[in-house]
Each structure stands twice: as structure tokens, then as C-alpha cells.
Design a protein around this nucleic acid. Structure first.
Lengths: 183, 183
DNA sequence: ATGCTAACGCAACGATGAGTGCGATAATTT
DNA sequence: AAATTATCGCACTCATCGTTGCGTTAGCAT
């Protein structure tokens, strides 16, 4: 949760923003998609609907903002010394994060809100994966293409989360790393 | 488009159903997500809103119905004689289908409508992939696990379609088959 | 400590989505 | 061919979303 560091004491705007973000996450997790409306968010956040309308404008923009905040900086890029170790550790963390039903609900709502929704959920993950590969390249090791890594790691992981009902265990996610590095 | 075979002459219900389905696809492709409302769908379909409310109840159920219809039976399972040939041909067809922006818009809306939305988009694809593998097994050939095939074929394909902005070309999709069969 | 500015709350309004009872129509069955 | 039944259209009502103007408050700077 990034809200604690964003809600700096003394800033009302930051406080309101944090409350609204939290309300969006809770509502997305609780009810069906059509209940995620601006008046409902405002009521749950203890804020007047006008404020939300003025600062975010629409549910789509609000969801994009919440998603980019929620899906950035919540997973730390490890530095275990080896590419395999970094990837396994990182994939396990991402899979654990994706195991939370509330996170999935937020992702689904964001995807449904517009064409850019999906990118908002995974843009930071792309950067993190690129950073891991770049670091190994700096070490002098042989590295896979970033595109290929995205396909074989993030692809199955997010596919299971969204399309297949079955849960993506942390162990299984780490197993994908072996398949990538073997090819 | 499956509408032509569903709109059998003489059946008013089927005609209405086809018109509503078509309207949903068009509206999902055209405007933002919040414009996909039941009165709008009814108006575009030339049908009274009451009819849509009574037959489908909510936008989520309507989207699930449209998605299962649209994503079933639109790709024929090939029979080229070999597993690699079948998979390459089938992946190319699926990728071509996913290249249509309208199809993507419908998928996004369906995913956002509820937890079951994603499954409605890929359930038929799972069955088709299972059928291809089963047939090869009947031929006596060595086959990969269905789970593994889903991870390495459908995973990257649908991830690119939803999360990554980049288009999934038909050639690239066929290339995934080689990676699967090599492992 | 005091003035300034940006953000928020409030109260109203219009627009539109959601739901209901009833009559009419088309498709099916005997 | 006539009766039956499921389905649809229509008129009406209620709830609520989206928006605007104005006053107030909190945060910030001198």
C-alpha cells in the first residue's frame, strides 16, 4: 500500500486522493462493475462527489490513476547476483501480488474502462523486467530478449489471472523462469 | 460473424437477439465503456429497452452472452495431419481474429463486466486446443500437457492483445508453436 | 500573524438510466 | 384454421448520475 507515504500530514489534497483511491479499490473488490460509480466512490471515501468529478472527470480516468499508483512500486526489484535468482524471486513476488482477489478485481475494472487500461496495469512490470535483464547484461551474462521474457513470463502469469480461473501459484510462476532460460 | 446463421427467418426472438448482439459489438467498438448502456444498445438495435432489460437483465449478463457467442465457433479446428501443422494453422487464425480492434474492445468490456468475463472469452479456445492435442494423442504422437500449451501459446497471445499495446502478428503467433514443441 | 490561492463542500438543476403493468403481436400447437 | 403462449412495444414512474455557480475552508507564502 502506497497510501501511507502519499498521505503526508498537512496535505488535504493528498488525504483526499488516498481516501478516494482506497474507496475505488474496495468498491472494485466488493460489488459488481456497475456499482463502481463516482457518487458511490465519493460516499465511501467520505468526500463530496463534486470533488471527484472535478479532479478525475470520469470513472475511466480515475481507474487509470488508481491502477498506475497501485501497480507501481509495490514490488521491489531483487538483486540476488544471478539472473535466474532475480527472476525467480521477482516472479514469485508478482504472482503473490496477483493472488489477491482485490487486485484482480481492480485489474479487470481498469481493463474494461478503456483501451489504455491494460498498459496501466503492466507498464511498471515491463520496466522492472527490463531493469533485471539490463543488470545481468551489465554483469556480462547472456540475457534473453526482453520481448521473449515478457512473452514467456508475464504472458502466462497474467493470462491465468484474467482468463483462466485457476490460481497462479508462486511456485508455478518461478517454474516459468526455467523454461525461459532453457530456450 | 455468427449472426447470419442465428437469425433464422421466421423467428422474431432470434432476430432480436442477433440485432442486440450486433449492437453490443458495435457500441463496444465505438465509444468509451460508459456509453455501453442498455438504452443505447436497444436504440441501436432498433428494439425497445424493455426487451433488453427483460431478456438479459444487466449489461454484465448481456456482455457474457455476446462474448460466448462471438468467441465460439468462429475459428475452425484444422486437421493438417501433424500436431505442428494443426497448431500453427490454428494459432494463425486466432491471432488474426485478435487483430481486429472491435474484437479487442468486446473482450475488454467483457473482462471488466465481472469475474467470469475472462473465461467466457477463452473457454472455447481451451476446448479447441484440447481437441487438437487429443487428436494427436490418438495418432500416437507425443503431446505436451494441455496446461503447458495454454501457458505458452494462449498466454503470450492474449497478454499482447490486452496488456501490451503491440499487435500480435500471425507469424509471431505461429512462432510460439516452435517454442512449445521444442521444450 | 495575515493575506492569497487552490481545493473542497453545498445546493440546486437537468438528463437519463432502470424498473413495472398492460395491451398487442407473432410464433407455435392441436 | 383457431386457440394458446411467449415475447415485444408502449406509457409511466422512480432513482440517480452528471454538471454548474457560489460560498467556505484549508494550506502556503510573505
Amino acid at each position: 500500500m502506497t497510501e501511507t507515504i502519499q498521505a503526508r500530514p498537512g496535505g488535504r489534497s493528498a488525504r483526499v486522493r488516498a481516501a478516494v483511491h482506497r474507496a475505488v479499490e474496495e468498491l472494485a473488490a466488493a460489488g459488481p462493475a456497475e456499482t463502481l460509480t463516482i457518487p458511490a466512490v465519493a460516499a465511501r471515501a467520505g468526500v463530496h462527489p463534486t470533488t471527484v468529478y472535478r479532479r478525475w472527470g470520469s470513472v475511466a480516468q480515475l481507474l487509470a490513476d488508481v491502477a498506475t499508483s497501485r501497480f507501481s512500486g509495490d514490488v521491489v526489484v531483487p538483486d540476488s547476483g544471478s539472473l535466474a535468482g532475480d527472476l525467480e524471486r521477482w516472479m514469485g513476488d508478482v504472482a503473490t501480488d496477483l493472488a489477491d482477489p482485490d487486485v484482480l478485481a481492480l485489474m479487470r475494472a481498469t481493463i474494461g474502462s478503456g483501451p489504455e487500461g491494460g498498459c496501466a496495469c503492466t507498464a511498471d512490470r515491463h520496466e522492472q523486467l527490463g531493469a533485471i535483464i539490463e543488470r545481468e547484461k551489465a554483469r556480462g551474462g547472456r540475457v534473453p530478449e526482453l520481448e521473449r521474457a515478457v512473452d514467456m513470463l508475464l504472458g502466462p502469469l497474467y493470462y491465468r489471472a484474467i482468463f483462466s480461473g485457476r490460481p497462479a501459484s508462486s511456485d508455478w510462476a518461478r517454474g516459468l523462469v526455467a523454461a525461459l532460460l532453457a530456450g
